[in-house]
Design a binder for these strands. Structure first.
Lengths: 168, 168
DNA sequence: AAATATTTTCAATAAATTTTGAAAATTCAA
DNA sequence: TTGAATTTTCAAAATTTATTGAAAATATTT
């Protein structure tokens, strides 16, 4: 297989993969393209390589920057802006985990805490099942929250860092 | 807060939550409804509670069954079919992990293994970055795969099971 | 076997999401 | 300050995905 064919396949399947994770196809494809580009590239290059419009590139690169996965790079002497992606997959993963935790898990746990305080007869099986389910999810979510925190903070902690290096 | 209000909130936000995880809104809502229903319920009850069509209920319950999260229950003397969801959140999670691993992670790792075998000059920085990126993702994914396997198999293994019980 | 209840299918429709592209805003150089 | 290059915005269009509902299929009862 030649590089160009392999690139196309990688970008395409990374895009499809992204859609299963609540990320839109194009955003994932731009990310893929940046991941395999040795040097920073411009909006125009992204447009050309992926055959998408300028507006589309602009919105999705901004979104990727918001996720902390991509950064703008200013190259001295160049008028255009360049984009570059974090290449260390461990960092990419912890960054995604951190963001999703903040955007999804934390608000969900907050809501569940509210819902658990429902008024009603605990002997009513409907009330009981509701409270049990909510409590169960909350407890589980709380644990997941802690585990993810450990992962995210691993790089800032020497002991954990050394431990987790086995997995890198 | 009253039970009905809390139920509505739970179902609604569980649905929204699901969309971030590649699950469609209605499927997640049906799942939520079943999670808080003490007894198995029929298609008609789901239709009524969520105000959705029969066809929609039918397709999404089938999908939930395919994910191993819901089962058909036959109640003696009843003509209609009833549906019931697994309530143990640990089991629900491992089941979802198992399915997603099978549907997404495994095929991705397989593809990456292919892409790593690209032909080309390793001194070309484009080739090098491509191979490095693919190898990095593959290595990371392989580790994730192992970790997830451990989680999924925990219930079948006494030592691990006891260990993980702390998290339940 | 016929009548009835229930479930399933799927083409048509509706809704949600993504993408475009051109105008507006911004940045930079002369 | 002007003009050219570049980026950003966002309403409209295109695309994708989800939902409906009625007809077909299946299952159950009499």
């Amino acid at each position: 297989m030649k590089l160009n064919e392999a690139k196309a396949q990688f970008i395409s399947s990374w895009g499809a993969f992204g859609t299963h994770w609540g990320i839109n196809r194009t955003m994932a494809q731009i990310h893929a393209l940046l991941l395999i580009s040795p040097d920073p590239i411009t909006q125009d290059e992204i447009m050309e390589q992926l055959s998408i419009s300028r507006g589309n590139v602009n919105m999705n690169t901004r979104e990727l920057i918001g996720w902390g996965l991509v950064e703008r790079v200013l190259i001295p002497g160049e008028r255009k802006e360049f984009f570059s992606a974090e290449k260390d997959i461990w960092k990419v993963s912890t960054q995604i985990i951190k963001e999703r935790k903040k955007r999804e898990l934390d608000p969900m746990l907050k809501l569940l805490a509210q819902l658990e305080k429902i008024e009603g007869d605990k002997k009513d099986k409907n009330v009981k099942q509701f409270v049990d389910t909510v409590a169960g999810i909350r407890k589980f979510g709380g644990q997941a929250d802690k585990v993810l925190d450990v992962m995210v903070k691993a790089d800032e902690n020497w002991v954990l860092g050394s431990l987790l290096k086995f997995f890198k």
